[in-house]
Nucleic acid binder design. Structure first.
Length: 423
RNA sequence: GGGGGCGUGGUCUAGUGGUUAGGACGCCGGCCUUUCAAGCCGGAGGUCACGGGUUCGAUCCCCGUCGCCCCUACCA
């Protein structure tokens, strides 16, 4: 916990579009390492590809990181704005004979013999024979620097001690190491995270659909739940713990426990976990959040009766929307429930509810249970027709609270409509 | 083609030279119950990729094979 005073990590996304969960996880792991060791989390935008590095794309990254509450201590630095530094080092490499011009471009000289070893915290030592690596280009013929050079120089200049990034960079690492060596610089520690794959087994990318951070936000996930879930995609703590507050994540996260094999994003499990976070909030807090999202007010009573059923905040409207607007009746529900004397029972329920005083949950419950006794019915025979009449569906919160929340006038009116239709 | 990485139920993972291979999501069933969830209980599902070794004994150690993925760009 203390040896980390000097630890400096960076998240260095290239702004090619929305930040997807793979990038988000890389950011999270870097952030966790920094916070765990009281180190520094640097944000650097790798925008040397001018075509794709639009202002909007860059803004999306900030936006995603802010929503995830992954705050950076330094930056954001723009790699593009550092081209003078890159050019300086390219010139130096050429001047010192480490690199040479080839048809206008600059290539680094890679020795034919020997090897470069990557020391990876997660994977151990990885050896690359030089003969398998060509002299690679470090600057275009227009003089602009290429990724491997820019990344190596920036990591060095920014004092990065731990490079934590996706495993797709493993093969780039020996190249960056060779640049660093030619520059006479020390190598940072590397940690290559297992890639995230789509269900098709391929590296996760834009084309895998609902995988961007902003989509998760729009679908009603909580940042804390997303962080918890993402932490688990490629990292495990012990044989039974998987629910971690952010503080626990910071305390327990170590690179040594990161797994080596690729993982597949499973939205079902995220949904489950998000539901768990939702249920642990208190109703007032959740109501406030939903009021912010929907622009409505006074949602707490509705939240109290639906909270246990929600998995995402967007579920709220599906579950409670009938309280605020009449929903078209689900025909399957109607035909399933409105038979065998259901209309008569519903009519009796209407009578009973018309006289409930006060019209609250206890009053409704008393009236309805008394009626069930009187008619000698299975409770569902009475409650389901009411449910369908007022919500349009066989699925809703508890019937007593539902009726009480809807209020007498609206309840009776909806029952009347149902009765009219039933006859 | 060359180089590199990875391989534990459908998915995420724990694990050790000797375990009934543990947990979670999902799935199925039960309880609860006014529906659906939640919660609790139970169940199905794994030849620990395959084949050889080493060993009294391998999921775990070694070698090979296969599969998947990444890099092999004047992309990042």
């Amino acid at each position: 916990m203390t040896e980390g005073e000097g630890i400096r990590v960076r998240f260095a996304p290239s702004p090619t579009g929305a930040l997807h969960i793979g990038g988000a996880r890389t950011a999270l792991y870097n952030w966790l390492v920094a916070r765990h060791s009281s180190g520094t989390f640097v944000l650097r935008i790798e925008d040397t590809d001018r075509e794709r590095s639009t202002k909007e794309n860059i803004e999306q990254i900030y936006d995603a990181l802010r929503w995830l509450e992954l705050d950076w201590d330094e930056g954001p630095y723009s790699q593009a704005e550092r081209v003078d530094r890159h050019r300086e080092e390219i010139k130096r490499l050429v001047d010192e004979g480490h690199a040479y011009f080839d048809e206008g471009a600059v290539r680094l000289r890679v020795p034919d013999e020997g090897s470069t070893t990557v020391h990876d915290v997660i994977r151990g030592e990885i050896v690359f024979e030089h003969q398998a690596i060509d002299d690679f280009v470090i600057a275009r013929s227009d003089g602009s620097p290429l990724y491997n050079l820019a990344a190596a120089v920036d990591d060095r200049d920014m004092g990065i001690t731990h490079v934590i990034r996706g495993a797709d960079h493993i093969s780039n690492t020996p190249r960056q190491l060779m640049i660093l060596e030619a520059l006479g610089s020390k190598a940072p520690v590397f940690a290559h995270l297992p890639l995230l794959h789509g269900t098709d087994g391929k590296k996760l990318s834009k084309r895998h659909g609902a995988a961007s951070v902003q989509e998760l936000r729009d679908q009603g996930y909580l940042p804390a739940a997303v962080r918890n879930y993402l932490a688990l995609l490629g990292w495990g703590f012990d044989d039974s713990t998987e629910y971690f507050t952010t503080g626990e994540l910071i305390r327990n996260f170590t690179l040594e426990r990161v797994s080596k094999s690729p993982a597949v994003f499973d939205e079902q499990k995220l949904r489950w976990m998000n539901g768990r976070y939702l249920r642990e909030m208190d109703a007032a807090e959740l109501a406030e959040l939903l009021e912010r999202e929907t622009g409505r007010s006074g949602l707490q009573p509705a939240v109290e009766v639906t909270q246990e059923k929600m998995q995402t905040t967007t579920d709220f409207w599906k579950l409670a929307g009938w309280l605020y607007e009449r929903r078209p009746t689900d025909e399957k529900a109607w035909s399933k429930v409105m038979k065998d004397g259901a209309a008569e029972n519903l009519a009796r329920a209407r009578e009973a509810l018309a006289n409930v005083e006060p019209f609250d949950q206890a009053g409704v419950e008393q009236a309805l249970t008394a009626l069930v006794d009187e008619l000698d019915l299975k409770p569902g025979k009475l409650y389901q027709p009411i449910r369908v009449a007022i919500t349009g569906s066989t699925v809703s919160p508890g019937i007593f609270e539902s009726v009480a929340l809807l209020g007498r006038d609206e309840t009776l009116s909806r029952i009347d409509d149902a009765l009219a239709r039933a006859r």
